[in-house]
Design a protein around this nucleic acid. Structure first.
Lengths: 332, 332
DNA sequence: TGTGACCGTGACATCGTTGTCAGAACCGGG
DNA sequence: CCCGGTTCTGACAACGATGTCACGGTCACA
């Protein structure tokens, strides 16, 4: 900046005025400064500017998601990004891979970076550690999983209701032996999905066979092996409820290997690209990722703009998308 | 920081020493300062610190990708993110959606933010505008599409060779009327894929029927309509080469609607999750996204660490993944 | 006891920028 | 020609941190 000032023969303050398009600079001087700026490839230092300006923003929000390459995370992030762009803000996104310790470190790091807001798809189950972080004034919004131990906005889907409707869909078609595939039980949303799975059974006066309820499956490959095993039972399931997108794809792989894709019903939780192109097309409980991402964006920017009303907890209802795989009748 | 110093009864410089774990502070003082830090929830201001420190890094790299929610972009980004984490660096990712103007603005913005490096999956075809941006010393690496008008590292796949091997795969199985679906011709990689498609034909002493070569298709929906139209021709294609993941899925939708998934052969360019679960499973030319992302990460961090050797252009060979859809024989 | 080395600490300048305020130059009106 | 009011410009301090250097105190040793 000093160099620009020297080249243009003015003070640094005048350069600052020109760069920030402040009024009250003669056009002759403005011209000289502008040409000096471009001749020297001068770029104002945003950090220094933010330092000096009162209550300036960094124009950055931090987003901690489960896994960038998972279509759910990516979809939410994409919608969030679009909202952020409208507010001239960048998104600093990181995958957590269910790493609890990593979550803590990253939050600390992001707060230290002075991001304007945090969007957290948490790996941890207790978020007390956030209290001191948020005292610094950084607003946070939780996505997909609700906050515990700290008061913050959240956007989640009604997991119990989604799992319930998916399961009831199978029960209503006569299935009585339904396998339930679930992710890590320590995750609250997974617990809710299990609850929904059970309450659907109760509504039909049934109790799920414990051998058919498998939890803590964390990859598609593991889901495939689990289904392989279930299909080998004396009385195998006639339908499968896979409570997460990766588990559904794992289940499809197993069914395909056994040539049972058209005989065993399957309902998944989470829609994903191409689910409609499978054969049979996959019936799923869909979470509207774009809407979730947009809602998160709206909440966080309201907070950034100074909204201090009590935390809001937005619950988005998932919808059942009927495509074929969930309508297969039980084999006698 | 002043408050911490006051509370601990020391100077700010000593607080700085403790925070940065510098040697030469008595443990008593260190103790007092640490407790003051946690009592006040003090967080050092990274921006101010960077301002003072000579040649400090922001610990940020900017990544401009085509579309975060596309599995190709997301996969590359995920691998890049992992590399960046190893270097204690965050990734500021943005979708370009083929927006040329947006690319320019974002690059300018990121350079102004003083990111340590830029990773660009460019929307534009000429990158002269980068010359002045890069003069500031920010290194850049191009992904997926090569730089033109500026000297910078790049990581691309051999598009011509990939398209050629995919097309030859179909020709070798007796197909003579092969439809080619391509994205925007202004994109260099698309031109190369077209070249590969043609040269495969030449190798068989053939010339593609111009009516079967459709370019500038930019969405899955449009691809579906195009295939609908091609199938309605008097002499419809017996095989389809879809030179991008979205175009392949669009093609599958059309084939499905016409009940032709098992009669018309299909080879796609770009692998994606679940391609193996389609029926028939999709034969594709696969780009190793993880390897691309890792390579990009290695290049950019070498530059950040001061490597000033001439630009390197890494070409990654795509591989043909045979699954079924590409092995369908032509119908008589 | 004096001396030099070393240790712990703080004062001050500085990074690049902008808010504040004051001064210089110019204008029109009396 | 003087005066008050604009208009334009610059000097200076400050944002939050750290590099430099100098200071006072301990300690070992001559």
């Amino acid at each position: 900046m000093r160099e620009v000032a020297a080249l243009a023969g003015v003070s640094v303050k005048t350069v600052s005025r020109v760069v920030n398009q402040e009024a009250g600079v003669s056009s002759a001087v403005r011209e000289r400064v502008s040409s000096a700026v471009s001749r020297l490839d001068y770029r104002p230092n945003l950090a220094a500017s933010n330092l000096r300006r009162a209550g300036a923003r960094t124009g950055l929000i931090g987003a901690l998601v489960q896994d960038l390459s998972n279509s759910f995370s990516a979809g939410v992030l994409r919608a969030l990004e679009d909202t952020a762009r409208a507010h001239r803000t960048g998104v600093l996104a990181t995958s957590l891979d269910e790493g609890v310790e990593r979550e803590r470190e990253l939050v600390h790091d992001l707060v230290t970076r002075r991001v304007d807001g945090l969007v957290i798809m948490p790996a941890s189950t207790r978020h007390d550690y956030l209290v001191s972080e948020l005292r610094t004034g950084t607003p946070a919004v939780f996505v997909d999983r609700p906050p515990r131990g700290v008061d913050a906005d959240s956007v989640v889907v009604d997991n119990a209701s989604g799992a319930r409707s998916g399961t009831e869909h199978l029960l209503a078609r006569g299935h009585r032996r339904i396998a339930g595939l679930f992710h890590l039980t320590q995750i609250v949303t997974v617990q809710h999905r299990i609850d929904g799975f059970r309450s659907a059974h109760e509504a039909f006066g049934l109790v799920p066979d414990p051998r058919l309820v498998v939890t803590d499956i964390s990859s598609a490959e593991e889901a495939t092996r689990v289904v392989d095993r279930l299909l080998a039972l004396d009385d195998p399931p006639t339908a499968i409820f896979a409570a997460r997108n990766l588990l559904a794809t794992g289940a499809v792989r197993s069914l395909a290997q056994h040539g049972l894709r058209r005989s065993v019903a399957l309902v998944g939780f989470d829609d994903f690209p191409l689910a409609d192109l499978l054969d049979p097309p996959l019936t799923v409980v869909r979470q509207d990722v774009a809407r979730i991402g947009r809602t998160v964006g709206e909440l966080i920017f309201q907070r950034i703009d100074g909204d201090t009303s009590p935390p809001r907890h937005v619950v988005i209802e998932p919808t059942l998308v009927v495509r074929g795989s969930g309508e297969i009748r039980p084999t006698a």
